[in-house]
Simulated assay, not measured.
Amino acid sequence: MVSVVLYTVLVGLVGLERLAELVVAKRNLAQSLARGGREAGFGHYPAMVVLHTGLLAGCLLEVWLADRPFVPALGWVMLAVVVAAQALRWWCIRTLGPQWNTRIVVVPGADRVTGGPYRLFAHPNYVAVVAEGVALPLVHTAWVTAVVFTVLNAALLRVRIHAENQALHEAYA
C-alpha cells in the first residue's frame, strides 16, 4: 500500500510539472503573438491535452483499481527514465527560451534554434514525451496505460510532427 501512495505522489508531482509547463507556455504564447507569431496545427491540440491528462489519470486508475504491484527491478529503472525525461524536457524548454510552447507557434524573423538537445535530435521534446509515456505507467506496472498511451501518442505525434515540420519549413525555407 505504501508503494501505491508513493506512486500517487509521483504522478501528482508530474501533474504539477505539467501545470508549470502550461504557465511557461501561456507566457511564451503571449510574447510570441505580440511579436507577430502565428499558430499552426492547432486542430490536434485539444486531443493532445486529453491524451496527456488521460496518461496521468490512467496511471492512477490502473494502479489503484487493478491492484498493480510495484516490481523493484522494473519500477526503479522506469523511475530513472521518468526523471531523465523530465530533465530532457526542461533542457528543451530552457534551450528554446521564449520560443518554447505546447502549441506550434512560429515568430517571423526569429532564429531557428539548433543548439542544446536540438543539435542531437530534430524533436527532443517528443523523445521525452515518448519515454515518459512508457516509463511513468511502468514505474508501478500499469502496462495497459503504457500501451494505450503509446499507441495513441504515436498517432498524435505523427500529426503533430508533420504540422510542426511544415510550419518550420514555411518559416525558414
Rank of each mutant, 00 (worst) to 15 (best):
N101A: 05
G36Q: 12
V130D: 00
A25E: 08
A20G: 11
W76D: 05
R35C: 09
L120I: 10
A135K: 05
G43I: 10
E62Q: 12
A34W: 10
N153C: 08
A34C: 06
V113W: 13
P72I: 03
L22I: 01
G43K: 10
P124A: 12
H169Y: 11
G116T: 07
L96D: 00
V83W: 15
V14M: 14
N125E: 07
T95P: 03
A167Q: 10
M48S: 13
V83I: 14
R18C: 07
A142L: 06
G12N: 01
A34T: 08
E132T: 00
A173C: 04
S3Q: 12
L136Y: 00
V63K: 12
A73W: 15
H169R: 15
R27W: 00
H52Y: 01
V14P: 08
A155H: 05
P69N: 04
N165E: 14
H44M: 08
L60M: 14
V144C: 01
T150Q: 05
L22D: 03
C59A: 01
V151F: 03
F121S: 12
K26S: 01
L13R: 04
A66L: 13
L120A: 09
T145P: 04
L65N: 04
A163F: 11
A66S: 08
H44I: 14
V107E: 07
A47Q: 04
L157G: 00
R68D: 01
W100R: 03
G116M: 09
